[in-house]
Nucleic acid binder design. Structure first.
Length: 861
DNA sequence: ATAGGGTTAG
């Protein structure tokens, strides 16, 4: 049998479609290789020549036999080289074969191309392609070779070549279709992949379990659940729903389309599962926010004895990061180590993400340093980790290192950095980042645009924010919400409302966050009724208020003086089944503070204990503050004493309480106490302690505190700190020292400082200095009537009534409310009354009454 | 056939 059975067809060779059949061909006897000399008809040879010819033929046959053995050994050697990935050696061997004039069959090209596919050796493959073209004839139009070439170019991601060759194949088979559809999938041309799938079916070809996974991947990526379901039906009809590859792809497709229930149904119905199947369900749950479910399935998988892979651990870590589940995430890390999983970029990145989300930045750093290969994602995660813990300087340093590694920033890097600049109000850096985005075309990414808009808004550059917002082509919900929140924060409720309408006109329906911002905008602008109205409107439109909505309303009502209503709202929130958190509890405590209602505060304290809501230190701190501000310093102290592990904010709250109640000695004792506990005081501690000293006129203690702050704690004094010390010095009569301090401070004196100096001048009868200070004060705050009164009081005290009249005239011109008859000011606990002009004025009588009620005497000078 | 990162509200 000189030729295989099908050689009589138009086709010189049967269409070979896989490397398996190629191998089968290779093991056939050498005579299957066409040799025109051998296939000459023996009958045409004359008898006399027959003998000679017979001998010659025998010789030829012998030659052929050695030829065949040689060829076979070459072929099998080359084939094994291809499979070992040593494509270059295989090609060298092929060249050697050509030199030895060994006959070459098409399968050899197929084998070589397959080797190139394994190695993704595009260049070598192209050279083989060139040889095929050079050889021409049956080689160039061989369907088997053509298919192999299509697959080769497809796997090497060269769509142009692959598609061109594919169009030329006359009889397209499932294999070439699978390659082209797969290529389109890899290139992200999902719609083209699906079109190919349809065309393939129209040409009467039945898809197999190699094509279907790719088709399902396209459905998943496009979230075309309709087509996906159709393919599912088709799969059942074809009877390949039992194939693990196909079923796993179905699980993945349903997950990607957001129908996790169906993914689970397919999963549950599978007779056979492998790691990929399990991974697909876990990934599906994570991507749909069902992190608990994902972790549950992970434990089921462990129970089933399936060995986890990189994908498993990576997804488990994602779920743990999203939940802040420390235990599970650490378990994931341990598992990766135990299973000997190599720390690749994906796994390492997942670990960094997990550790930084649970606040263990040192562990994230450790993983980062252990990784051999890092990509942009890895670097971005470390940057994001630092930003999350507020270490912006470290984040920027990582950026520098990243540049040294020749990696460039992408939109994720910039979005992360911009959010950091927004949080820290670093307009300078923010502008630099914005410029970088413009230069590198990152403004085409909506997420980046949102972060830029937010940065400008937080840095109080609303006009810039609006400009960037307007210049964006795409405006998604988050971008609208960012702009809306910016106006709301400023209390520009009109602009916020305009945004709210406009987004709907542009077919972006608002979500809870949009409504929350709108409500906040009204509240910040004092439009309490409008805010309440919006609160009802959103519900009638089917948007349910969430914790933030309720909290916004509670705090807003408290701050607007509707303390009682705030408390009622807090109750209604709980009736609606929403458990209060720290922010809402602090909000409702604020209501008690603003009402100065010890009764409500106490009731609330009881409520918190009964409902086990009294759980965190920030709440305890607020309670201390509430009791102090509602007048019960003893109760404040009791709450303070009950806190076990006291941190700085609690101490600060208590020191502030003592200062408020004029208990400077206690305040200073607590300051010493916190230092003994090893707690590092901050600028707030010093502000409160200095206020206490200033109130109690404890000059030495105050100066010592100030010295401590600057020398031992390296805290740059704020103007408020200077103000306290200036106040202290001047009230003790040391005006020279006060002025010396003002001369050395890096700030211009503010109105409060001038005010306290003014009071001290009056006390010590320094009328000229007082006049000077009054004028400075009026320049600083021309609209504050208190300053005019202080000035007129000073003139009154000096008996310069004409000057008093001038000041009053000035007030009248500026449209400021004048207090007729007389003036009174409060310095510390003392009430000083100056009578200017008309003593018989009814207003003066009122003041007399007030003073009498306070048990104070009126002093005339 | 499956995996990792960023933006908005109190």
């Amino acid at each position: 049998m000189p030729f295989p059975a099908s050689c009589g067809n138009d086709q010189p060779y049967p269409p070979l479609v896989s490397s398996a059949s190629c191998l089968a061909m290779a093991s056939l006897p050498y005579t299957t290789i066409p040799n025109p000399q051998l296939s000459l008809s023996k009958q045409s040879i004359p008898i006399e020549l027959h003998k000679q010819s017979q001998a010659h033929f025998t010789k030829l046959q012998e030659n052929a036999k050695t030829h065949q053995i040689l060829y076979q050994s070459y072929f099998s050697h080359m084939s094994s080289l291809c499979k070992q990935g040593q494509i270059q050696q295989a090609v060298d061997l092929f060249v050697e074969m050509e030199h030895k004039n060994l006959q070459v069959c098409p399968e050899i090209y197929g084998e070589l191309l397959q080797g190139c596919v394994y190695e993704r050796a595009l260049h070598t493959g192209k050279q083989i392609h060139a040889r095929i073209i050079k050889k021409g004839g049956i080689f160039a139009i061989n369907e088997y070779i053509e298919t192999k070439l299509v697959i080769f170019y497809a796997k090497c991601d060269v769509p142009e070549a692959s598609n061109r060759l594919f169009r030329r194949v006359r009889l397209k088979n499932v294999f070439s279709w699978a390659a082209v559809i797969g290529l389109n999938c890899r290139m992200g041309f999902y719609q083209e992949a699906l079109l190919g799938f349809r065309e393939m079916q129209e040409n009467g070809l039945l898809p197999d379990n190699f094509v279907v996974p790719n088709v399902l991947k396209a459905c998943g990526a496009l979230e075309w659940i309709g087509i996906g379901k159709g393919v599912h039906g088709y799969v059942v009809k074809l009877g390949c729903s039992g194939c693990v590859f196909v079923a796993s792809s179905l699980v993945d497709m349903y997950g990607k389309c957001g129908v996790v229930e169906d993914a689970r149904k397919v999963f549950d119905g599978m007779p056979e599962r492998n790691v990929v199947t399990w991974n697909s369900v876990i990934v599906g749950y994570v991507q749909n926010g069902l992190n608990e479910e994902a972790i549950k399935v992970f434990y089921e998988m462990k129970e089933a004895g399936v060995e986890p892979t990189h994908v498993t651990v990576s997804s488990l870590l994602s779920a743990s990061a999203n939940l802040g589940a420390l235990q599970e995430g650490k378990h994931g890390h341990a598992l990766a180590v135990v299973c000997g999983l190599e720390l690749n970029t994906n796994l390492g990145s997942s670990l960094i993400n997990f550790y930084s989300k649970v606040g263990l930045i040192e562990d994230a750093e450790m993983v980062f340093s252990k990784m051999l290969e890092k990509d942009v994602v890895t670097w971005n995660l470390l940057i994001s980790g630092y930003v999350q813990v507020g270490e912006v300087d470290k984040a920027l340093n990582v950026c520098r290192l990243m540049r040294l590694e020749n990696l460039s920033f992408d939109s994720v890097t910039l979005a992360t950095l911009m959010s950091a600049f927004a949080d820290t109000r670093s307009l300078k850096f923010g502008k630099v980042g914005h410029c970088y985005c413009i230069r590198n075309n990152l403004e085409s990414d909506v997420v980046v645009v949102s972060s830029i808009v937010d940065m400008y808004a937080k840095c109080e550059k609303i006009d810039c924010a609006k400009k960037v917002f307007n210049s964006s082509f795409i405006r998604d919900l988050v971008l609208w919400n960012t702009m809306l929140a910016a106006f709301a924060e400023l209390g520009h409720s009109g602009e916020a409302l305009k945004m709210f309408y406009q987004m709907q006109l542009e077919s972006v329906p608002p979500n809870v966050i949009s409504w929350n911002s709108l409500i906040l905008g009204f509240l910040k602008n004092g439009q309490v009724n409008e805010a309440k109205d919006m609160f009802w409107q959103m519900q009638s439109l089917g948007v349910q208020p969430n914790l933030v909505t309720w909290t916004t309303l509670i705090s807003g009502l408290a701050k607007s003086g509707f303390g009682y209503e705030a408390i009622l709202t807090f109750q209604r929130m709980q009736e609606a089944g929403i458990k209060p958190n720290v922010v809402s509890i602090i909000g409702v405590l604020l209501a008690c503070i603003n009402m100065a209602s010890l009764q409500n505060g106490r009731a609330l304290h009881g409520h918190l204990i009964r409902h086990s809501l009294y759980t965190s230190i920030p709440i305890a701190t607020s309670l201390v503050d509430m009791y102090a501000k509602c007048g019960n310093i003893d109760q404040a102290k009791r709450v303070f004493d009950m806190i076990e592990h006291k941190a700085l904010p609690v101490y600060n709250a208590m020191i502030s309480s003592y200062a408020l109640h004029g208990q400077a000695v206690e305040a200073l004792a607590l300051y010493q106490g916190l230092k003994e506990e090893g707690v590092k005081p901050d600028y707030i501690t010093f502000t409160n302690a200095l206020y206490a000293c200033s109130h109690a006129m404890m000059v030495n203690e105050g100066l010592e505190l100030f010295f401590d702050m600057v020398s031992y704690h390296n805290i740059n004094p704020s103007i408020e700190h200077y103000g306290c010390v200036v106040n202290l010095l001047s009230r003790c009569g040391n005006l020279d020292e006060a002025f010396r301090l003002i001369g050395t401070m890096p700030y211009k004196p503010d109105a409060q400082m001038l005010g306290s100096l003014l009071a001290a001048c009056r006390e010590h009868n320094k009328i000229e200095l007082e006049e000077y200070l009054s004028n400075e004060l009026l320049k600083l705050q021309p609209d504050n009537s208190g300053n005019y009164i202080a000035m007129s009081n000073a003139y009154a005290a000096a008996g310069r009534w004409d000057e008093v009249t001038k000041v009053r005239q000035l007030m009248k011109e500026r449209g400021l409310r004048k207090i007729p008859g007389c003036s009174w000011i409060q310095i510390g606990e003392e009430l000083h009354v100056f009578v200017a002009g008309d003593i018989s004025h009814p207003e003066t009588e009122k003041i007399y009454m007030t003073l009498a009620l306070l048990g104070m005497e009126m002093s005339f000078r």
